[in-house]
Design a binder for these strands. Sequence first.
DNA 1: ACAGCTAAGTGATGCAGGTCACACACTGCT
DNA 2: AGCAGTGTGTGACCTGCATCACTTAGCTGT
Lengths: 238, 238
Amino acid sequence: MRAPYGLNILDNCLTCPSRADHLFCNLSAHAGQRLNEIKSTAVYPKGAMLFIEGQQPRGVFVLCTGKVKLSTTSREGKTIITKISDTGDVLGLNAVISSRPYEVTAEMMEPGQANFIPREPLLQFLKDHVEVALRVAQQLSRNYFTAYEEIRTLGLAASPSEKFAKLLLSWSTRTPQNDGSAQLKLTLTHEEIGEIIGTTRETVSRLFSEFRRKQLVQLKGATLVIRSRPALEEIVQS
Amino acid sequence: MRAPYGLNILDNCLTCPSRADHLFCNLSAHAGQRLNEIKSTAVYPKGAMLFIEGQQPRGVFVLCTGKVKLSTTSREGKTIITKISDTGDVLGLNAVISSRPYEVTAEMMEPGQANFIPREPLLQFLKDHVEVALRVAQQLSRNYFTAYEEIRTLGLAASPSEKFAKLLLSWSTRTPQNDGSAQLKLTLTHEEIGEIIGTTRETVSRLFSEFRRKQLVQLKGATLVIRSRPALEEIVQS
DNA sequence: ACAGCTAAGTGATGCAGGTCACACACTGCT
DNA sequence: AGCAGTGTGTGACCTGCATCACTTAGCTGT
């Protein structure tokens, strides 16, 4: 099967210069060559669905550029976002390895490029290159850990404020300043934030107001300034 | 390191006659032999902790008999039970493969027997027997799927009643009758059920009352009769 | 510049479920 | 028997959040 929504193929991004620790990087010359033969690269527009929850697994996607929203929806239409993936992430691996339907929907949040590796050739590749199978196992168990983090957040955090503080903290770790503050671009809508922490759009709005009032965060345009990580950590464990 | 709480060693239960699909069954003669050398068997009393959340992984446990409660606790003391494991389950696999701390606490709910396979020999074993590594990957992705089920339940189910109905349904699938009813032994306390579905003991009590009033379930002693699976399914999707 | 759309802020209301408090049932122990 | 310990059933109360219903802000194309 071909990758859907295929547009222009740009270049070989399997080399991932930035993140050499990733699944399909630093392979033996032979394995790398083989992988190059079975992968296909494509560019996807914003809103494109790489795969949809419940579909039979066609293959995995290695994200080169862009952000991807992973979400799952209940029959009644309630949606939760389980992860925002970015460069280097491998999507759909669990479904392919276990031959079960994709457990989430993967949607491009901005235009981006991804390599598609079809299911059958990938499974064959793993049989031929068993040294990669162990790395796959490690990637899977990393995925498992982040899933468990999610379970802890959803199951143990009492209030929406706590989950919200936790989310802000997880964001601020990427741009930490020495004084405990952090600054980042806010790319999600309140609606989407609500779907991450399991609450409504209105509550997220009110949480922002509250946190601003308490001087925990500051907001100018799309730039969010987290003024004090310690204060947020206080809320999380409260 | 030796398995803690070791008592009498009974017999070799790696053969798991009942569940040939499991991780360490149906191995090649050579691999099976090797595994036998590195495993050690022990009997654990009720309440014994096989491992505790946050500990560095010592190895995996293959459960031969007994039930094990897997749980995680927040700093404030709130606990959620993520899974009740029984015969054949492999515990601690993710932590060992990814070399991260155990993500849950594993406690014996009744006396039982388990094989312990220490970390280092196991990792070496996987390097030597790469055909097993793929099966490990599959086991990990199965674990991932059940974790995702958990996320869906915690994140998408609106009310405690919904989660409770879902739990009853998951129990009743093991003893299905042709008329849509099912019968099972209730081994958990209301407190524990609350920790599974993320609510309080009192609410579980009230849910039992309510479901009994609505003729959904019937309770005599420790025997729980589920009178109509369809009616429960109704509640779940509502 | 204006309509049209999506996102964000905010008030009013209602109720589900957490918390507290207490009574009762069952078990094993001495 | 009698008591302690653990599990269960229920009532009363109260709060935090979902829901509904608007308004306001910001952006996009014509």
